[in-house]
Structures are given as C-alpha cells and as structure tokens.
C-alpha cells in the first residue's frame, strides 16, 4: 500500500553533536526544534550542534521521534514514554534541559523544567546547592541571618537526598 509520498525518499537531516557524532533523522522529526527548523528553512541539511553532547542528543532524538508520531490513539504510550524520559539523574536533566533550550523544543523544555521544579520542592538549600553544583557565596554569618529572618521556612523536615 505504498503511496507516492512514501515511495519518495524522505527528506533527511544530519545532526552533529558537540562530540562530533553524526545522526541522520527525518526532517519532519527534526523541525520540532525551532533552531533546526530555522536552519532547514534556510536550506541546510547538515546541522552542527556545538552545545549538545551525544548522550543528550540521542535521548532528544528519541523524544522527537516519539512525539513526531503523536496520534489520537497513542496518547497513553507517549505519556509513559515521557515519564520514563524524565526518570533520570539531575545532571542528565540539566544536560537535557540546556540542550532543549538551545534547540528550542518548548514542549520538552516545559516538561523538564516542571520535573526539576517538582524534584527540588522539598530539598534544603544545601541539597539544592549540591544538586546544581553551586558554590554558596554567602558567608556563614549571612546565611545564619537569612535563616533567622526566614525561620518559618526552615522549620519543616527537608529532603537532603540528592536524587
């Protein structure tokens, strides 16, 4: 039952990661990214992505492929896929969210930002620092002052875990 459009060769794109791996994907899959779409519109078929590493790019291509095939019937399947997709370490989430930001894939960015927000909800400032690899630039005195002034925020139990 091959229609004429299917027999025609699909338009393909090459994406190149920051660590110089190349991936071929269908153009229709790639243009879910605004950044790629802009380049495609300008006639590019080879897209170097100097800010996106291979590890993240593989996951993002998976995501784009899955979401490109969105139909009315596979809603649940995509939900399950998304749930698995974000079930990873914070470092991976940051890597992915930065990549999604660079590629301008807004639905993916929204999902990742929401996941990060949900997962830091009960963390202490110290745990958040560790998770985000942030050096605290408050002096111990400044920090004590903040804690005292905001004592009601520090009364409850915090989740100190880093995952």
């Amino acid at each position: 039952m091959a229609s004429t459009t299917e027999t025609k060769q699909k338009k393909m794109l090459i994406l190149k990661s920051a660590d110089n791996d190349e991936f071929e994907i269908e153009e229709s899959v790639g243009v879910q990214s605004e950044t790629i779409k802009n380049l495609v519109e300008d006639g590019f078929t080879f897209v170097p992505l100097p800010n996106v590493y291979t590890k993240a790019l593989i996951k993002i291509i998976d995501y784009l492929k899955k979401h490109a095939n969105k139909t009315d019937s596979n809603d649940e399947e995509i939900k399950t896929f998304d749930k698995d997709f974000v079930n990873t370490t914070f470092d991976d989430l940051f890597e992915l969210v930065s990549a999604a930001n660079y590629l301008h894939i807004s639905c993916l960015m929204n999902m990742l930002c929401q996941t990060i927000a949900d997962r830091i909800k009960d963390k202490s400032p110290e745990a958040v620092r560790k998770i985000f690899h942030i050096n605290c630039d408050y002096t111990p005195e400044e920090e004590a002052k903040i804690r005292k002034a905001n004592a009601q925020a520090f009364e409850g139990q915090f989740d100190e875990s880093l995952d």
Partner: peptide, 30 residues
C-alpha cells in the same frame, strides 16, 4: 531556565508550609 523552574515553584506552591521552597531557593546563593 532557572527562572522558569523557580517560577513554576512560585506558581504551584501558593500557601505555607509548601511555600517554604521559595524561601529555600532564595537561600541557595546570591
């Protein structure tokens, strides 16, 4: 992105004690 994340927390955690998370974010670093 950080702004987006904190904004989501500020939106979803409207009342105390859950809202403590906003104060915690403000205590992470300058």
């Amino acid at each position: 992105l950080l702004m987006d994340i904190i904004h989501r927390l500020e939106e979803s955690e409207a009342s105390w004690p859950a809202r403590a998370v906003i104060v915690c974010c403000a205590s992470v670093c300058k």
